[in-house]
Design a protein around this nucleic acid. Sequence first.
DNA 1: AGCAAAATGAACAAATCGGTTTAATAACTC
DNA 2: GAGTTATTAAACCGATTTGTTCATTTTGCT
Lengths: 203, 203
Amino acid sequence: MRPSKREELIEKSLFVFDQNGFHATGMDLLSAEIGMSKTSIYNHFRTKEDLIVEVLRLQDEQFRNWLLRRMYDLGTANHGGPREQLLAMFDALDEWFNHDNFNGCLFLKATGEYSDHEHPIHRQAIEHAEMFEIQLLALVKKASLRLPELVTRQLLILKDGAVSAAQVGHINSAAKDARYAAQCLIDTHDTSKRKPVQTSFAF
Amino acid sequence: MRPSKREELIEKSLFVFDQNGFHATGMDLLSAEIGMSKTSIYNHFRTKEDLIVEVLRLQDEQFRNWLLRRMYDLGTANHGGPREQLLAMFDALDEWFNHDNFNGCLFLKATGEYSDHEHPIHRQAIEHAEMFEIQLLALVKKASLRLPELVTRQLLILKDGAVSAAQVGHINSAAKDARYAAQCLIDTHDTSKRKPVQTSFAF
DNA sequence: AGCAAAATGAACAAATCGGTTTAATAACTC
DNA sequence: GAGTTATTAAACCGATTTGTTCATTTTGCT
């Protein structure tokens, strides 16, 4: 059929939900905001929750595509390798944080508003986190770091923490602060360098 | 007057809002959940938002008190100093994460649901973050670390990131992962140790 | 016991919620 | 250009939203 209208609906809904929150955004407001009749919306989606799930699916795809692409572009600029790409994640985040429409992580907000772990919206958010972890782990392994799973989870913590800090704390050195921390972690686990800080752990 | 009833109302509301979210919790449900008539609730608070602000104020006080106290108790157990107290933050977080009622950070959820930066609820969440940063900075300074402001912000990022990871990612090594990362950061900024960061290739 | 304050349940109001219906219009296909 | 399909605005539905009113009961104080 014609995917453009439906895709446009999801895309615009993504923006409104991101700015206003899920429960706080009524379907009448949404309809007015995205310039599409409520009848049409409900012609494309059975329920509001179905729409939200699709919104999260789109955001999952868009966000991972954007971030990984940006990591690659920024990281390989000066003949950088996997290590530079990992660090470039925080440069990309910095761009995001300083964007006008930055309003925190949509997935985190989704789990906050739909706290039931079995709720489709909640599960969609978890799925996003899992898929990004897989992709990040692949890059960490390319960087030849010790304990790649641990480092991956730590980098994810730094990323999520930076997002939270940027959302709640007006001041924004969050991305840079996280970058320094990541540098420290990566150096510590670099196999081409000496210095394992302390006794290893089994993971 | 008699503070116990009002305090009890705030305390129970805190639990319900934490589990259900703010917009998703109607006043009728709240009334039923905390076992107090709606009339009485509105006798104590003019609006729902006023109640939420007070809930966040209580959570601010309770959370900071609990975390700092727990950091002190756990950190000074084996004759530990400020450094051990800082690391103990993540042990305390681990306890929190594994608690039955853990449902993420209430302040983050508040900023997510009330995204207007000037909204009293949003401001209350920001205020909490600022106050905890001040207290953590004091402890970091006692630990005699280089660049104490930076390290403080980085520890906060690790904390918030661990909370996010524990909320969205079911699996919970978040607190431990963040602890190792913090250890790495603290060691790197320890004035009593040599700096192992850059090209220290000494075998 | 007696009095005043506090708490209650239930009904009520006005607005909004998610979602449906309908009749008319716009747009694409053959 | 005819016919199908998609889209529209607006009215409508019952349930729920925040918040109020009021008459009754419970409570705390002396």
